[in-house]
């Protein structure tokens, strides 16, 4: 049975009361639920294993740079009930760290490596957290808003 975002929020709130922070629903924009970073693994296991929710498909996982903090956005979908939800966590900019959900959905493996490569977010418990798109000895986190393109890399001039 297809559930709306508010119903999913109520179900989550009844199970993990304080870890679910808020739901934001605006016209034209997708609704999202902000959750506490430390409880993300338990929340995802609950979302996958509960019968009425059955979120068995992780569509996308990406990092975000809100100018004062970093964040991670999870887009989930259920192939059985045909409903979807977006979760968000807000992280500290100096030491961004969140539990890895690679054990829940295997597709998170490469997505989390990309978020680490582009933003520097550490995923605890990830089996192989190394860079994936940039070269293995690249310095800096490219998609952060304050990133400066390097001048030289291995002797090649980078700017135009």
């Amino acid at each position: 049975m297809k559930l709306q975002a508010k119903d999913i929020f109520d179900k989550l709130k009844s199970e993990f009361s304080d870890s679910i922070i808020e739901i934001k629903e605006d016209k034209g924009s997708d609704p999202f639920i902000t959750v506490d970073a430390k409880k993300v693994l338990d929340i995802c296991l609950f979302l996958r294993d509960t019968e009425e929710l059955s979120f068995d498909y992780l569509s996308s996982l990406n990092g975000m740079d809100y100018k004062n903090n970093l964040g991670v956005v999870y887009n989930l979908f259920s192939t059985i009930h045909n409903h979807k939800i977006t979760l968000k966590v807000i992280l500290d900019k100096e030491q961004p760290s969140v539990p890895s959900i690679e054990g829940v959905w295997k597709s998170a493996n490469w997505h989390e490596r990309e978020a680490y490569d582009m933003f520097g977010i550490k995923f605890e418990g990830h089996p192989n957290l190394i860079r994936i798109l940039s070269p293995y000895d690249w310095e800096g986190y490219p998609l952060r808003k304050d990133y400066k393109t390097p001048e030289y890399y291995h002797g090649f001039k980078v700017p135009y």
Binding site: P142, Y147, T149, P150, F156, V158, P159, Y160
Partner: peptide, 19 residues
């Protein structure tokens, strides 16, 4: 010469004649 990625491409080599 780097093509459409000349301006903000931090990982693109601007033209193969550099190497």
């Amino acid at each position: 010469c780097g093509g459409p990625y000349w301006e903000h491409g931090y990982h693109v080599l601007k033209g193969v004649d550099r190497i």
